[in-house]
Amino acid sequence: MTQQQQQGLQGPTPDDRPHPTGRRNSHGERIDPDTEAEQHPRTAVISALVENEPGVLSRVSGLFSRRQFNIESLTVGPTTVDGHARITLVVEETDAGIDQAKKQLKKLTPAIAVGELGTNAVRAELVLLKVRGEEPDKVHAITQMYEGQTLDAGPRTITVQITGDQRKIDDAIDAFRQFGIIEIARTGQTALARGDTPTTPGESPGESATATDDNQTLNYDD
């Protein structure tokens, strides 16, 4: 067998080679470094229709944590279709990050459909506030102002419920601070697309959505 006698690898050194001037940003997009502006995160509401099997929530939350997607809230509950659940996620990411989050979510085997909700979507959150009970009349007045309900009232504490969009909830919490808030529990946002638009692509109402005898299970307010 012949042995080559050169000394190591040959060729122009790194400094002697031509180098292109182009650049990519951290998303791998080609950019003009002089004019390129940083991509800023925005808040997006993502709805995922999933098969409601054991472990599905941990698949979703595990995905978001291991891929380092910033998540503000996650809510989950059954839908009109037996065995399906809707997961609503509020994420804070750049456009590229939101795109990735949706695609990775759709890749999970139990995921049936994934959609991002537009700014006009119907959104709501519920908060329970336990405040000091020294000024019941004032507490009542503020509760009414935010169209809330008093769920529990005692000599030392009053617990109220407020629903609405995130802004309203934030305002309400501020307003209740004067009484001294003892505890808060927030559900996180849940949302549906407005009007005829399906919330996730291709989604159509399940049978029980029109069946009257199922209605009471959808009505928690009795």
């Binding site: 650049r23 990519r24 940003n25 791998g28 080609r30 590229a96 990735q100 890749k107």
Partner: peptide, 22 residues
Amino acid sequence: VDSFAPEAEVVHVDIDPAEISK
């Protein structure tokens, strides 16, 4: 990534949509 194929447009064929522009 900043200096990867810095002058190139990219055609990406993949069966996994999540790999596109990841």
